[in-house]
Simulated assay, not measured.
Amino acid sequence: MSPWIFFRNALALGALMTLLAPLRGEGGVSVSVMLQWVPQAQFAGFYVAQDRGFYARRGLDVRLVHGGPHRDSARALETGEVDFSTLFLATALVQRDRGVPLVNVAQLVQRSSLVLVGREDREVRSPRDLAGRRVSLWGDAFEAPYRAFFDILAISVDAVSQHRSVNLFLRGGVDACCAMYYNEYHAIWQAGLDEDQIEPFFLRDWGLDFPEDGLYTLASTATRSPDLARNIAEGTLEGWRFAQASPDVALDLVMRRAEDAGIPANRPHMAWMLTHILPAIFPDDGGSDSPGKLSREAYLRTARILERHGIIRHIDPFESFTLDGVSRVP
């Protein structure tokens, strides 16, 4: 080999290594994951997986970042700001319908905890009492199930924006607010409104028991790096199993994350959240849902309801929506 050819090949190899270097950190392959809300027990399994080395054991150097009312995790994934994001299934279906090629890597939360909470002193005692009332709702990323709910009831509401807290509801600025049973519902109770002063309406009681938090990536990542996606999913599930077995350790990590982010949090509320989200991740009700897996039945049921109510226009094949299906495509 001539010296010139050797020098040219060495330069090419050096350039290639420079390009690949950012993909691997000291602890393994660098991966970013956006969790769709602020630090709280809803994401305990991720914190555990990072802290206890469940990701590192799989050759991953995972960076966890948080979304929130003003930071859309679906948008961050679409633009390439992050490699993976958590999203509700309904949100992911809406994004697919808009042309964003999302793929479900793991279905973490198998059951719905969405609820609308009405004020008894405003005579909101049934869902139809919400007609024409002021109701605070989260934005675009979380609205699909509520749109279907109002369509089933054939009512419209005076919707106002709800951000990170339920203060507007607590101060009487709205007649009802949206909530997660494991989060805002308990926060309302902690703030001093007793159960006989509020009326919860669970969306699952109206046929809208949609799976919620799932882990998603773009189809390009799923097809290019299926093992990476599986390792993220497996490490996260191991974190959730640890949180289920050792909730006090998991809560310590949750409180530390909230404190580091400057997010007000109290341990009893985080304990309530963890206690009530775990059964939705590991259901023990005789159903067909396996931890971490999105079932075809749940996918089609959710998609058909959204299509029926005009929230999405078409339903993609189940195989094109899941990691197992996409990674089998030649």
Rank of each mutant, 00 (worst) to 15 (best):
F54L: 11
R125F: 14
V254T: 09
G286M: 05
A298D: 11
Y55W: 01
V82G: 01
H309V: 03
R75A: 07
A303E: 09
P69D: 06
G68T: 07
M1C: 08
G45E: 01
F84A: 00
A258W: 06
V94M: 02
L253M: 12
R171W: 06
I305S: 09
R267F: 04
A265S: 12
Q107V: 04
V254C: 11
L208V: 05
V174S: 00
T223A: 15
D72E: 08
F6G: 05
F6N: 13
V117L: 15
P279R: 08
D51L: 01
A261W: 03
L13H: 11
Q42Y: 12
G286Q: 06
S136P: 02
R71A: 08
A74W: 03
G67W: 11
S327R: 15
V62D: 01
D227S: 14
Y47M: 06
R133Q: 05
F6E: 15
G207K: 03
R125H: 15
R57S: 04
A131G: 09
D121A: 10
L77A: 04
Q36P: 04
D196M: 05
D248T: 14
T217E: 13
P200K: 07
P127G: 07
R8M: 10
Q42N: 10
M1L: 08
P22T: 09
F43Q: 10
G45N: 02
H186E: 15
A131C: 06
F88R: 03
R134C: 00
R313W: 06
R204W: 02
D209L: 03
V174I: 01
R75F: 02
A131S: 12
A159W: 00
F321V: 15
P268V: 08
P268N: 07
A258E: 06
D196Q: 13
R96M: 13
R111W: 05
P247D: 08
A76V: 02
M273S: 14
M273G: 11
N9E: 11
P145I: 07
R301W: 04
S85M: 01
C178V: 07
P226E: 13
L87M: 12
A154R: 15
P283N: 06
E184K: 06
Y181W: 11
A229V: 09
V38T: 13
L11D: 02
V135D: 00
I232G: 00
V33Y: 07
L87T: 02
G286D: 08
E238M: 05
T221L: 15
P211R: 07
S220K: 15
P3A: 14
A191W: 08
L278A: 05
L237Y: 05
Q50H: 02
V29C: 02
L60I: 01
A179T: 10
D213I: 01
R98A: 15
A10G: 02
R147N: 10
L64N: 02
L89N: 03
S113L: 07
